[in-house]
Amino acid sequence: MSTDVQEPELQPEEGRPSPLSRRTFIAATGTATGVAVAAGVTGSGTRPVSATEDVASELADGTTSQVSFLLNGRRQSLVVDNRASLLDLLRERLDLTGTKKGCDAGACGACTVHVDGRRVNACLTFAARLDGAQVTTIEGLAPDGDLHPLQRAFIEQDALQCGFCTPGQIMSGVACIREGHTESPEEIREWMSGNICRCGCYVKIVRAVDHVATGGR
């Protein structure tokens, strides 16, 4: 997807070209692990900082954070731009592109992941806030080489066409089943309403969730 190449949080403001490319920025911040992040909101931290300023001043200004969290069972420790969403971190830095960017505004559910066992929108989650968290993405749902029962059910029920919303649907569906909101097709539809399917596969998506919830597999 060409739209995925962009990293919105590093886009310069309109009319202000940035001398800093995303890759340069990441390379620079990547070596900065261990640099203490300014803790206060006083002093230079409150100064308006433009995205065009150099990396050193951003670090000094505390606009990056050190985070350490479990991602699909493996420890990740890294320095992130405070503006980076979990979604962009997953896709652009950690090469986990199963989590999709649809609206980037919490309206479509394509980026649904589990944080501490709860389904959330990765696009509205600042990565800097994840210190100590446990994150599960579609890649970590089942052991390597295996599929989660709901993934199998999606295939068997043919619950997708283009497939773009599918990882989010499945992460949401797994949580929906765990929450117990699967008593009827109507209840499944209501509790899956945070996941939009542009192809309109809702009937089969509900069928797949229902199939797994009722122990079909």
Partner: peptide, 26 residues
């Protein structure tokens, strides 16, 4: 998005102090 600093308040007192200095609660 514009850059910003990020801190975690560990007490209500600490949060209010930061808020009074212009920090925005999230």
């Amino acid at each position: 998005m514009f850059p910003f600093t990020y801190t975690r308040a560990t007490s209500v007192h600490e949060a209010i102090e930061a808020g009074e200095r212009g920090g925005r609660y999230i």
